[in-house]
Amino acid sequence: MCATRQTPDAGGQVADAVRGNWVDRLAPEAARPYLRLSRADRPIGTWLLLIPCWWGVALAASVDGWRIGDLWIVIGCALGAWLMRGAGCTWNDITDRDFDAAVARTRSRPIPSGQVSVRQAVVWMFAQMALAGLILFTFNGITIALGLASLGLVAIYPFAKRFTWWPQVFLGLAFNWGAVLAYAAHSGTVTPAAVLLYASGIAWTLFYDTIYAHQDKEDDVLIGVKSTARLFGAATGKWLGLFLIFTVGLMTLAILTALLPVAGPVKLGLALIAPWAMGWHLLWQMRRLDIDAPDTCLFLFRKNRDTGLIAALFIAAAAFL
């Protein structure tokens, strides 16, 4: 059954949050606007930022085995993804507050609805970044450098839809940086396999965020915001098919590049299930997609958590062999 978008209630619930989420039910009332600003009531974005990190550490571990320190990489990336996704969404809402006020799905967000002031949002953003920085500085030097470098991508993304029809590319560059970062956290270096894995994640982001953008295409036309959904229009299915091919193909190349020199056929075969199982899940999404049904678009977008976890599971399993 497709998830339906909700209307904000008197307590400040955001329109596209799942009804009955933990923020609306359990969080202290004073904290709710800030947690909503961080999208804590909509965790799919945190998953989509975290999963490439887990791909990266799992692929690196598949080369030379899991280490005790990898447990902290897995946990640290999860905490960092939650914090940096929150900081990124706060920055996005600060820069987009006028656009958000003009779109039905987003006008209930904390800044345009008046729950949080811009000044309060800025303080909250830096608080989240500071905590994420404490986690980042527990890793090795190259990982720290990569983490700091990612801030430029995070800063640019909210403005991309104002000057390019391909803002999803900028989202992909930012959201999949963790694949390289977590690979380096384990291995101490960046290899061609890590870069190929990163490229695969960018193609995946183009797939799922094009679906997501179809929710707002009518409002985007009115306010002049660009997106791949508007660019592709009725040809969206063909483009999604291309992104599917690139996602699967580039992840396959990443695994072959990493493991062919060191792995036996069983390990290699298990790892290679990851991109192809992921591809079948993307194909299932394409068959269900109706670009003119916003609720279906949101439902399928959220299903990409499962898509990414499928790949992470098989790569991680191969690392135990």
Rank of each mutant, 00 (worst) to 15 (best):
L134I: 13
W204G: 04
P52T: 10
V118I: 08
N176P: 11
G279P: 04
C297N: 09
A30R: 15
Q128R: 01
W204S: 01
K226W: 03
P265Q: 00
L206R: 15
L59T: 11
V123L: 10
Q128L: 03
I144H: 04
V116D: 00
K238G: 07
I223A: 06
T228C: 15
G241Q: 03
L313F: 15
H214F: 08
E29G: 13
G80N: 12
G65T: 10
A149H: 05
R85A: 05
V74S: 03
A101C: 09
D292A: 07
I245E: 04
V23S: 01
I94D: 00
D96P: 03
M129P: 00
L282N: 01
T257C: 13
D96T: 01
I144R: 06
W166H: 15
C297K: 06
L259R: 13
F99Q: 02
I142V: 00
V122Y: 05
A263R: 08
R25E: 12
W276G: 05
R67P: 11
G56H: 07
V103K: 04
M286W: 07
Y198I: 06
F175S: 10
Y157M: 02
P192V: 08
P110I: 10
G152H: 11
T228Y: 13
V262G: 05
V154A: 13
F320M: 14
R162C: 09
W166K: 15
I144W: 09
G86H: 02
I144Y: 00
I211S: 05
R162F: 07
V248T: 07
L270I: 15
A182R: 08
W124V: 02
G241F: 03
D9H: 07
T252F: 14
L153G: 13
D209A: 06
V74G: 06
T90V: 01
L272D: 00
D306M: 14
N176Q: 13
A235E: 13
N92C: 01
S187V: 09
L151H: 08
F99G: 09
G56S: 02
P112H: 07
T189K: 08
T252Y: 14
R97C: 06
M251D: 10
T143V: 03
M278I: 04
L289Y: 07
A199F: 14
K267W: 07
H186L: 06
A130Q: 04
I310H: 09
R287T: 00
